[in-house]
Structure formats: C-alpha cells, structure tokens
Simulated scan of single mutants.
Amino acid sequence: MDIVILGSGNVATHFAQNFHHQGHKIKQIFSQKKANAQALAFAVHADSITEISEMQRHADLYVIAVSDQAISSLIMDFPTDLSGIVVHCSGATEMDVLNKFKHYGVIYPPQSISKNEDSDFSQIPFCIEGNTPKVQATLLTLIHTIAPLSFACSSSQRLAIHVASVFANNFTNALFQISYELLQKHDLPFDLVRPIILETAKKVQTRIPKEVQTGPAVRNDKITIKKHLNFIREQDDWKQIYQLLSQEIVKRKS
C-alpha cells in the first residue's frame, strides 16, 4: 500500500516504521515542524511535507496520528475527493469525525506508545473500524500485516477499551508515583515495591482481578486501614484516594 502519515510523534513514528518494515510504501510524512517531518521521513524513505496542500491525493491510506484535539482542525484543509481511506488513531474520538470523506475508519492501538521505546505490534490487539464493510475488511487485512491480533470493533466498544485502559494504565501509574513519593519521604527506594507490582500484573494475565485482590480492605481490617490513614494524614489527596479505593474493594467483595 502507498501510505501518507500525518504526524511525527509517538504513534506516527511506530506506524511509519512498522508499515515500512513490512514492505508498504510510506509516501509522505506530514508535520508542521519541518525538522520532525524530515527526521521521520528520512528513516522510512519518504518525502516530508509541512503543508496539507502538499499532500498526495492518490495514496491508498492516510493515517492521522495526531492528538485528539488536533484531528478536527487538521482535516479541515483536507481535499474531500481523496480516493484512499482516511483513518485516525484515537480511542476516544468518534469515527464519524471523518465523514466528509468517502472511505474512512479508525486504527486504534490500546497501548502506551513512546517514540524512543520499542513496541511489539504483534502483541497489541488493534481496534479496527470502517465506515463500510469493505473499508473495514481492507483495514483489517492491512493491519494484520503488522499487528495480527487486531480485531473489528464499534466506536462504543473502542471507547470502552480506552476508558478501561485509563483505569488499568494511567491511574495505576499515578498510584505508582504516590508509592514512590511515600517511600522517598521515608528514605526508602522504590525498588522495594517493584516485585509486588510485577507479581500483581502477572496474576491478572490469567485471572480476573477480583479473584486475586489482597490487602486490608478485602479483609475488612479496619484497624490497619485506620493506621494507614493516620500515617498519611498530612496528605489529604492520598487519604481520599486510599478511602475511595478501599470502599471500592469492599463493595466488590460483597
């Protein structure tokens, strides 16, 4: 396929590299920052552009890999007579934001992707949606060349995956940071809790999280909970988080 990548950040970089490695032709890389466009374009043997007016009109696929907030403003300058499929990569943006085009869809990777870190696309179940059965089938065939676990899903299912990912990834990482700061405050290294983080993540690979829940809340150990809350009494935010999550665990137990 001939592909145009719009964006030069984390997701755009990995898409461009993976498609390139699988033999697809990356025709152009677009970025408003010339240096960024040139750097990624050089890596995948593509041309770099900084204006939508320079975009080729006869590519097979146009991948919009920019922030959710930038999608609508970016496509305002797109020609509407593109023969190829236009997709975005957002988990929370409706597919129909692209309905000005004849062929459109979504390729969403439910994964935290960083430009300078390897991401094994073969292990990521990409969420695929198309505005017609033919478009969806074409996108699935394409994405299976780089991410064989990919599957078709609706916009509502994609949003459910996005919200679930925020709970499972973003929120847990914020809790890791609280653990880090609490330990630092008492001259202890974060390495002390890394094993339990890994063990918990390992358990939920094969079991339902509720089944492996541990801790004072699931035991209804009110004495320990009170002691913990008193220990972090100077951190009101931490106390609220501790109480809310403890209440959630107790509710799930019943």
Rank of each mutant, 00 (worst) to 15 (best):
E54A: 14
L61Y: 09
R194T: 01
E234F: 13
D187Q: 13
K226P: 05
A92D: 08
C153N: 07
I161E: 03
L198T: 08
F151D: 00
I64W: 02
Q177D: 06
I196K: 06
Q22D: 01
S48G: 01
H186C: 10
E129C: 03
Q240F: 03
D221K: 12
D237W: 10
S67E: 13
R158C: 08
Q38R: 09
F42Y: 05
F151W: 10
E94L: 05
V250T: 11
L183I: 02
P109Y: 05
Q17F: 05
S112Q: 05
D60N: 15
T13K: 08
E248C: 09
K227A: 11
L6S: 05
I26K: 02
L40A: 02
V218S: 08
I196A: 04
G23K: 11
I71Y: 08
G7I: 00
R207Q: 11
L188S: 12
T145H: 12
N116V: 02
S114Y: 13
V135L: 14
F190W: 12
K100V: 00
S150W: 10
A217G: 03
D60C: 07
L183T: 05
H162R: 11
N10S: 10
A41G: 04
V204K: 08
H58D: 14
D120P: 09
Q38F: 04
S150K: 09
H24I: 00
A217P: 01
H24P: 06
S156Q: 14
S150G: 11
L188R: 14
R219P: 07
F190N: 04
D237E: 10
V87L: 12
A12Y: 04
K33M: 06
A147R: 05
D118H: 15
D68P: 10
I113P: 07
P195A: 06
F30Q: 00
L182S: 10
D191C: 09
I241M: 14
E248T: 08
D120Y: 13
S67V: 13
D187E: 13
I223N: 14
F171G: 00
D191S: 13
A39Y: 01
V163E: 00
A168H: 03
I249N: 09
A160Q: 11
D237F: 12
V166N: 04
D237L: 14
D191H: 12
M95H: 07
T13H: 15
